[in-house]
Design a binder for these strands. Structure first.
Lengths: 160, 160
DNA sequence: TATTGTTATACTCTATAACTATA
DNA sequence: TATAGTTATAGAGTATAACAATA
């Protein structure tokens, strides 16, 4: 259907070819995602929070007393996968699992004072990392990108 | 520094709060990436190629006789990681490792006729999946998104 | 019966380090 | 010495299935 340049069987003919791959949103999204993640980890350094741990802490700070099930749903991951993340945050004394009187199945998650501090410090570092990495993008570019990403993200039915 | 809404310590106070997390490009990029990848896999089905295998095949079709080292560099992964991908493509008879006369260290990668066919079939399926998933985006939206993703991707220094 | 948190387990993707054969 | 391909190995991140305690 689409016209395609004739392939030469001799040697690598990289001359001016734009591979199909480069025209796919998925591939470019993956590469951009990897670049951001790598820079995030570099910005937070050796002992820093991983992206997923930071995300979890962020939502616990925003939603005190949230349950693990709700949090997992918000993050779009399974309950089982969240256990190790909360274990790490608890081990670092950044949050606590506390008992809920009415429903003894639930352990409400609350950020400790240390957790609040660490979160806001880390958030500042993360924002600086994004500002630096996305310095070539205008404010309007970033706004557009954010809106488009949210649209794609929501297309795939969030469980929320 | 930034004004922040006072947190209530009572119960989960989700009321109208926009968590910091939602304002980060990185987090939204991850969610969008996961959504696209999930839909890609669903579109290609059980026995279909994985995103990374498809990407590798695409570049082999575009660059006949490419070496594994060059291919790994283009994909932004390590040489060692590419071995399993090429093994799979060879096992499926979609490409061959062929000997290069001048340099016996290199095994030039060439797509088989089956590989060419499978690639073009799969590409059509992938394009259909993207068209479907990104149906809410205008052509101009998609163009903008692509440009922004490429910009971010290149900020992080491609080895190429 | 359904839900919460948990464990056990496995799978995918990726990286690092070391090896071999060639150059 | 340097490069191409390979292996061994380990570490993230994730999912599925099952279980105990509780509702």
């Amino acid at each position: 259907m689409a016209p395609r340049a004739a392939a030469k069987q001799t040697e690598t003919d990289t001359t001016g070819v734009v591979p199909d791959l480069e025209t796919l949103i998925g591939y470019n999204m993956k590469r951009a995602y990897v670049a951001i993640q790598k820079d995030f980890r570099a910005a937070l350094g050796e002992g820093g929070l991983s992206p997923r741990t930071f995300s979890a802490l962020s939502l616990v700070v925003a939603h005190p007393n949230i349950s693990q099930s709700s949090l997992a749903r918000m993050l779009g991951i399974e309950r089982s996968g969240l256990v190790a993340i909360i274990d790490e945050l608890e081990r670092r004394n950044l949050l606590t699992r506390s008992v809920v009187p009415n429903d003894r199945r639930i352990q409400a998650l609350v950020a400790t004072p240390d957790g609040q501090l660490a979160y806001h410090d880390t958030l500042a570092t993360v924002q600086a990392h994004e500002d630096r990495l996305l310095a070539d993008l205008s404010a309007s570019d970033k706004d557009t990108l954010m809106k488009l990403l949210k649209k794609i993200r929501l297309t795939d039915r969030e469980s929320t």
